[in-house]
Design a binder for these strands. Structure first.
Lengths: 345, 345
DNA sequence: CTTCGTGGATAAATCGGTTTATCGGTTGGT
DNA sequence: ACCAACCGATAAACCGATTTATCCACGAAG
């Protein structure tokens, strides 16, 4: 392992000063002859010079690094897309990303913020792995950007999914397909996820706008799991015919999976007998079901990009939390409603 | 934002030189009076000193950072556990991790290695998101550690899952449950995953050791998806009774999911009529199926830890690629074989 | 009385770049 | 002939820590 070639080596080989080399390689607007410029550049690549970013950073006080603090990367399948979004923008701008995982422990969080500050990161992104409201740690600089969470008691820039509009879009799809009795399968999770509430609000928005009645029997709460989704679906499908829903909108895909088992057990077919809508577009799940699950995608990649662009000041600061659109993913779990056994009118 | 407090500020406040402050805070073996030591330490915390790692790194030539190069973090649900393993060890040792995603493009890879070298990272971990054999980029230092991939043509330290032993363990479980006719559902993926071959070898190992015949009809290849797994299962279960398998071992969970749909379509029940074994222990899938899927877990977290410990020289270099054990996860998809309709003997 | 050793602390060099101020030389204007 | 402007290039300061070499004072030894 030969020692790293430095700027002094380039200077010596080119017969100029280190100053000149620095000016040339940084394209500083300075009066250096074209002849010298090309020679320095040629020699630099010839001898394989690559600058020591640590030394540069010390002087310039900018490191071209950002710190990404996340509460947990391991336990959610969405983390990757968010990281990818952040990372892609970083790479496009020749930034490097420090990744720190806190497991949600505030002591680790504080240590991480300290360590990142010590490393002189240019900015910090404070990410949550699901949409929630968080109080910023006192040590967090005000320039930090919140990703997939919104700050309580501070006005950090922030981006979260527009769950309300997403829920509305899902329900609109079902209405457009002809459904009039649409259930919402909620979660009993405690504390209640912000998203569960927003999606429910979206549901209400659309039903009201369409002039449809809100039937409390069609709002059921269950454990956040496939089994919970199955139980919810079974109870809904056992309602008397005239109150039974023809479509079910689930808090998320994980619960929606349970609908398939329930339909199977009741010898019903999706979407012929009941339409199903999920939320999250969970990879390797939603698209692999039979029939593939219609759902609303969480824009994790886009949110990651947004946060990083924000961190690099490439976006005007929003007046408040930025709501990222959740695109509807149309698959085969939605169809026209099955004719009601007792037809009214 | 007040300027970062530096070592000079501590020195001034304590009425000593910067040298003294440095010696005290680094616990250097030096003759400094206890009185001075405690005073310096007290003042340092009082005024909130935190060292500038950039400056320190420049001098010490060690940055306490490592670079983690991965081919893709977004598209696999396992990435998180691997990152978590790497990260936990990093944190325990007060290291920070640069995360770089290359999407498998060698140009990005080269740029990343250059950038990380410029940042003077102490070590590099070269990770793949699934078990494969890779040729190291020429620029990769020989001290780099391979994670979830083994090097071709170089002898970098490396860790991969012991897929062969994992496959053997799965099949052993099935044999222990009483099965004699066990199918292996392979993938047609091209290029063929290393793991598909190793798991198959594990299958053969066990059948041979148990003195059971190898029936080529029980080795089927299908597309790597739930649909592929379903087709494979259906073809297996339609074999004539005396050649039909009583248990199916799938290349991975994703394909094993198809067995549930197939069983349903054929009005068979898992595990009463057929036992099912997966591989990967894919989160939010294997455990959520009904019945929950018995499978073999990929030790991503442990491999991540191993790689980072290796990078920090906390492990003796292995003579060759380290094979990490894949633990068997017993769930409810395995039972005793259903009695063959035509009983012989 | 001089020399030596030692405890406590520090001045100065160093890491590898960037930035500022300055240099010598040539040209151009008056 | 003198000064200003400008060109091309560089010496030296600087970033904030660590590390080396050195300093002073004091007590013990010769």
């Amino acid at each position: 392992m030969t020692a790293q070639v430095g700027i002094a080596d380039v200077a010596a080989a080119a017969g100029v000063s280190r100053t000149t080399v620095s000016l040339v390689l940084n394209n500083a607007q300075s009066r250096i002859s074209d002849e010298t410029k090309t020679r320095v550049r040629r020699i630099a690549t010839e001898i394989g010079y690559s600058p020591n970013s640590v030394a540069r950073s010390l002087r310039t006080r900018r490191t071209r690094t950002i710190g990404l603090i996340s509460d947990r990367i391991a336990t959610t399948p969405f983390a990757g897309r968010m990281l990818a979004g952040v990372h892609d923008v970083a790479r496009e701008n020749e930034y490097l990303v420090f990744l720190v995982n806190t497991d949600g422990e505030s002591q680790i969080e504080r240590d991480a913020i300290r360590a990142l500050a010590g490393q002189q990161v240019d900015r910090v992104i404070y990410a949550s792995m699901w949409h929630q409201e968080l109080r910023a740690p006192a040590e967090l600089p005000s320039s930090a950007v919140f990703l997939d969470c919104r700050p309580i008691g501070s006005n950090h820039a922030a981006v979260v999914p527009d769950d309300r509009a997403g829920g509305a879009a899902a329900v609109s799809e079902l209405i457009a397909a002809g459904h009039r009795r649409i259930a919402y399968v909620d979660t009993t999770e405690n504390p209640r996820p912000v998203a569960a509430d927003l999606r429910w609000r979206g549901y209400l928005d659309v039903l009201k706008a369409a002039g449809l009645p809100i039937d409390p029997r069609l709002h059921v709460r269950e454990e956040l799991s496939a089994a919970g989704g199955r139980r919810a679906t079974e109870s809904l499908l056992r309602l008397p015919p005239h109150s039974r829903p023809t479509a079910v909108f689930f808090f998320n895909d994980r619960m929606a999976v349970g609908a398939y088992a329930a339909a199977n057990a009741l010898r019903l077919e999706i979407p012929r007998d009941v339409s199903v809508f999920g939320f999250d577009d969970q990879q390797l799940v939603a698209s692999e079901l039979d029939p593939p699950l219609s759902t609303v995608a969480l824009p994790h990649y886009e949110m990651g990009r947004w946060a990083m662009e924000m961190a690099l000041d490439q976006r005007p600061p929003p007046e408040s939390t930025y709501l990222m659109t959740c695109p509807v993913i149309r698959r085969a779990s939605v169809g026209p409603p099955s004719p009601s056994p007792t037809k009214t009118g």
